[in-house]
Each structure stands twice: as structure tokens, then as C-alpha cells.
Design a protein around this nucleic acid. Structure first.
Lengths: 229, 229
DNA sequence: ACCTGAACACCGTTCAAGT
DNA sequence: ACCTGAACACCGTTCAAGT
């Protein structure tokens, strides 16, 4: 009984990736909590226990889904600029943009902290960021601290901003209900206004942090050329 | 059959709060995923279905646990300074400190985005932050953006920093394994070094953001006094 | 008002069996 | 090598029944 209508027509593609793509689509539509292995089985036309042939466990499926999102973030960043500060800006905005496209996935973005380290898109993103920070002049503990700051900010703020989706609007209304400023009224009027506010705030913080990275990097570079060796 | 050894000796206290405190203790020890209602029943000496007399559902339990952590954050902040920038610093560091004390709870801190809005400690924290930002001179959309930035940074970065705990050390080693800088070697040597790096990076970003809030607030204040009305 | 016990519909995971 | 089907130990939640 050929129930595998998706897999049958994608024999060329790697089964693992086909399943992961189906999982991403399912999460986008129904949320991450609704993604049970049985539901994923229905979506792919496979028996739910067949997943264990391609994934270690359910977390492994989510890890693969996250890798797709990071990969989309890289392609969103486009051709990477030569200038390191511009490159960091492009990478961060690209990743943010991919996460915004898949808000329901974001909740499981805390998972990759544990398990995504070995995926290829994450390694690419990681080394791109480290190389850019180094080019800015950062080294040693300065490099460590600012790398950590940038990572925590970009991923942390995005997880926070999108993790509660799609309950955003009502939540924000609740949290700001004691404020009487008319600007608050306007910003909490609809989803679009809140989303725009989020993006403006995120970009403000991102520029702030990258400016600091460039400033400290430039200082360190001057310091090194003053007393070489 | 008196199985309720905890509740029996705390008849004065509110049952809901006693259960929430037991849940916090359990999560600290066994992680948030291990907190099933049946396990919580065992910990409190109650039948697991009795929880529904005090909580709407399992998420409601986690919401109550989060409220305790935020409350601890407020008390960690201590006597609040008069100066608004110092007050924001104290509030943010206090909350961060409470979250660091309960890293396993942090994973569920994305939940409060949806549901914690109505708890009393969160409301207190919220209004304290808004009042401080206003005192700094921020108003209108400036106030909105910087409030959002501060909130996303403090909560987001902390969720990200602690969410993967206690798998921190191995994760960081994995993620930075391509770096050869000796400073990285030192920083990933043990848990304490990584924790220290996290705290240094967090505080750096916090000061950066608060300086920006003060700067923009001061500008806006000058602007308002230049053309009053 | 608060707690118990049985029950329901689910879940992730394992494993022997098929091709 | 890949997939199925039955089975296991669990889970959150509901509800009638007890005091």
C-alpha cells in the first residue's frame, strides 16, 4: 500500500531532508507543539515509527528544522559585503528575517544551543561572525565577550520576540495596559504595528552593539600597532 | 490516609503558593521537562488530579513558578535607587540574578510572554521599568522602542544564556571548536569560566543599552524645554 | 471546598516482523 | 536498507464519587 505520496515523488532527494522540510511546513501551520511524530507521519505518508530510521528522536527532527531556518537566514543575507561591520549587519538581519518568517519554529531555537552545533549552516554562520569580529580588530577576551554579546542579543531577542507568537498582540496589550501615552495606543492597535515596533527596536540594539564592537576593535588595533610583537 | 505531609504543616499558607514553591524546587533539581503533574503530586503528597483544583492546567503551574522567580528578582534588586538609570541597572541585574539561580526554569520564561502579564511581581517590575525610562526623559515612540529593546535584551539574552543549561559547557566547546585563540581555550575550560564570560558580556550590553536610553532621553528633554507646549 | 480513583485519548519510543 | 504494526510505559485532562 503506497501511502508515501511525498516520498515516492522525491526519491532523488535525501529522505531525511524531505521529512525535515515537511516538519517545517507543518510547524509553520500548526505550531511546534502540534508536531507529533504521528502527525509528521500523516504529513509525509510514512508510519510514525519510520522516523526513527532517519532521526535519533523527536529533538533531532527539530534540530533539522532549525538548520533549515538558519540556512534560509544565510541566503537572506545574500552576497556578503567585504566590510566586516556591514557583513555582520547582513548576517544578523538575514537570520532575524528567517526567524520572523518562521515564528512558530523559534520556540525550539533554544534547543540548538544544545544540539545544533554540528549542523553545517550553523557552522557557516558561526565562522562568518567570528571572522568579521576579528577583522574589526577584536582579539582575545575582547573577541570572546563581544561574540557572546552579539550571539545572545541576536538569537535571544529574536527567540523572545517570536517565541510567544502568534499570541503577540493580546500579550502586548496586557503588558502595557497601564500606560496612557497615546503612542502606546497606536503601537498596540494591530499586529503590524507591534511587529514594526519590534523590528525598529531590534535594529536599534543591533547597530548599537556593532558600533561598540567596531569602536573596541579599532582601539585594540591602534594599541597593537603602538607596541608590536 | 494523610499523604499530604507538606500541606498538612502549611495549612496557614495558600495551597496554590505552596504547590508552586514545590514545583520550583522540583524544577531546580530535575529540570522543567521532568515536572509532570504526577511527579508534582508525589512531591507535594497530593493526588495529581488535585492540581486542577488550584491551577487551570500545567502551563498555569509554570506561570506561577515564573512569578516566584520574578519576585526573587525584585528582592534581589534591593532598595531601589532614586536615580532612574541606576534603578534600571538594579532591576535588570536583579532579574538576571534570579534567573541565574534557577536556570532550569528559564526555558519556560517564554511562556510568561503569553500568560505572566497578570501576575503581580511582573506588573511591579514592568511599571518600575516604564517609570524609570520616563524619568530619563523618554516619551512617545522613543519610550516604546527603548522599553522594547531593554525588555527583549534582558529577558531574551537571559533565556538564551540559561535555556540550554546545564549542557552549557559541552555546547560552548562544540560551537567554538574551530577557534584557536588561546583566550577561547581558557574561557571554555570549565563551567565557572563560561558563566563568568556570560555575565561580563551581559553586563556590557546592559550598560550599552542604558547609556543609549539616557542619551536619547536627555536629548528629548532638551528638545522639549526648547519649545514647550 | 478539597481530594481521590478510574478512565480517556494521546504521546515518544522500542522491537520483532515483513520486503 | 527501509517500512509496518503491535506493544509499552507514560502523559495531561475530565469527571463522578467521596468527605
Amino acid at each position: 500500500m503506497p501511502r508515501c505520496y511525498i516520498l515516492r515523488v522525491n526519491q532523488a532527494a535525501d529522505t531525511r531532508e524531505v521529512i525535515a522540510a515537511a516538519a517545517l511546513e507543518f510547524i509553520d501551520e500548526h505550531g511546534v507543539n502540534a508536531l507529533t511524530l504521528r502527525a509528521l507521519g500523516r504529513a509525509t505518508g510514512l508510519h510514525h515509527t519510520a522516523m526513527y530510521r532517519h532521526f535519533k528522536d523527536r529533538n533531532d527532527v527539530l534540530t533539522a528544522v532549525n538548520a533549515i531556518v538558519v540556512k534560509e537566514g544565510l541566503s537572506r543575507a545574500g552576497e556578503l559585503p567585504k566590510e566586516p561591520r556591514e557583513r555582520l549587519l547582513a548576517l544578523a538581519r538575514g537570520l532575524r528575517s528567517a526567524m520572523r518568517d518562521h515564528p512558530a519554529v523559534t520556540l525550539s531555537h533554544l534547543l540548538p544551543i544544545e544540539s545544533l552545533a554540528n549542523s553545517e549552516p550553523v557552522a557557516t554562520m558561526q565562522s562568518g561572525i567570528l571572522a568579521s569580529l576579528t577583522e574589526l580588530g577584536l582579539a582575545g577576551s575582547d573577541l570572546l565577550v563581544h561574540h557572546r554579546l552579539l550571539e545572545s542579543y541576536v538569537l535571544g531577542a529574536s527567540v523572545f520576540d517570536f517565541g510567544g507568537a502568534p499570541a503577540h498582540l493580546e500579550t502586548r496589550r496586557q503588558r502595557l495596559r497601564h500606560v496612557t501615552d497615546p503612542a502606546f495606543e497606536a503601537a498596540t492597535r494591530d499586529e503590524a504595528s507591534i511587529d514594526e515596533l519590534n523590528e525598529v527596536a531590534f535594529d536599534r540594539g543591533l547597530v548599537l552593539i556593532l558600533d561598540e564592537c567596531a569602536r573596541v576593535g579599532a582601539l585594540a588595533r591602534v594599541d597593537r600597532s603602538a607596541r608590536p610583537g
